[in-house]
Nucleic acid binder design. Structure first.
Lengths: 219, 219
DNA sequence: AACCGCTTGTGAACGCAGGAACAAAGTCCC
DNA sequence: GGGACTTTGTTCCTGCGTTCACAAGCGGTT
């Protein structure tokens, strides 16, 4: 009996939980104390029944007839996602996109902290971005070891992304978020997630041309 | 009989087609003329059978026993995705992320062209980024009308994203790519895609803590 | 105390995506 | 020219995700 995950939560649900967490934080800031699944679902842009099912994965915490306590639910989701404790991340590649990521405030408020910025360009090394000094990518292994970073973010040009990925994996990083437009291969045990901005645009463009193929009016 | 889409292609397939397009371009640049489904699948990080199924959606163009012609397949995918003709995009919000997007070379090579950059900050208006001059967001409607842009990209702070979305939709933009960390609501007929960078990170972090809950060795 | 409305949580059905296996077809070799 | 190998295109099937619908439970009210 292998039983790989005793209480597995589907990936799609995890992604939505992160959205709920953001909405709940917004509600809490607005002074709201309770929320129903319908309101929360419409604010998150999902189906109410699906939202309740998502929430049921982490043990129900709602009160029937009333709804959910905003603070308690936010706390519980944060705990399940592991967002309560800070996670150390290293960022490789500080071009336009990398710099944007290093400055992005959304990470810090969600429990992610950049502890190392690395680049290969001499004119970028030594710069201070987001409160951190950019270091030489040659020090990658040393930085990962010193900071015990568990997450690596790749925002380098495509032609060096695989090499950086290999070095990150070898240095002990087990989770990698890749923004370079290449498909990375990593050893088993290392999770790689790929965000390709142009793919998103192309899907959008396809859907738009699909919607109005010729110019037919509604029958 | 409604029959909404005569020959619908699943969204997941469309997203992968965009990936195949990138890999094929890389192969073509490398001088390769033919490719098998196995090779292409491994380069794209997908299952060979799934790749063939994806390609079957656009009418088969492969030769049994040989594989696919790289140039022909690339051409066909580009035509289906509508990537052969250039699409005009407007970008609102030129902070760190917006500037990165405006400079991102990956868009231009895929048939997307920014024709308008808009921001509200006086010190950003008039700057030249990626060959374009940043204009006042007050001119949004005028820019959209003049350029006939069909795609809008939102990279503004969260608190003004909905307002920008409304104005883009009212100006005639039917496809919106949103990078602001809020769920946008748009009228029917307007497609909104949301890319939340911190959600990606949180999913990654959850998967990593899921893999090794406490520190158990392999039984 | 009992009733009623509201909301959660869960069970079942539907549709879709993913993967494996198989038939058709073309090429290479003998 | 024929056979065998390779590779595509398709079909089936399994599993997952999503949605609908209903029972269970709690608060407010009379």
């Amino acid at each position: 009996m292998i039983q790989p995950r005793p209480r597995s939560i589907p990936e799609a649900t995890v992604a939505r939980l992160a959205v709920y967490l953001r909405v709940l934080t917004s509600f809490a800031d607005g002074g709201r104390t309770t929320v129903s699944s319908g309101d929360l679902a419409s604010a998150a842009g999902v189906n109410p029944a699906g939202l309740r099912k998502d929430l049921s994965h982490l043990g129900s915490c709602g009160v029937r007839g009333v709804g959910y306590d905003v603070r308690a639910l936010r706390e519980r989701i944060a705990r399940v996602l592991g967002a309560e404790r800070s996670r150390a991340c290293v960022l490789v590649g500080l071009g336009n996109l990398g710099s944007a990521l290093a400055d992005y405030a959304g990470f810090g408020s969600r429990g992610f902290e950049f502890v190392g910025l690395l680049d290969a360009a001499p004119d970028r090394i030594g710069q201070c971005i987001g409160g951190l000094t950019v270091r030489d990518v040659a020090d990658l292994e040393a930085v990962v070891a010193a900071t015990e970073a568990s997450i690596g973010v790749i925002a380098t040009p495509a032609d060096v992304a695989q090499q950086v990925c290999d070095r990150l994996a070898a240095a002990g990083v087990r989770s990698i978020l890749n923004f370079a437009p290449v498909t990375l291969s990593a050893p088993a045990g290392v999770d790689v997630r790929h965000v390709d901005l142009s793919v998103e645009l192309q899907v959008l463009a396809f859907l738009s041309q699909q919607r109005v193929p010729v110019g037919e009016a509604s029958a």
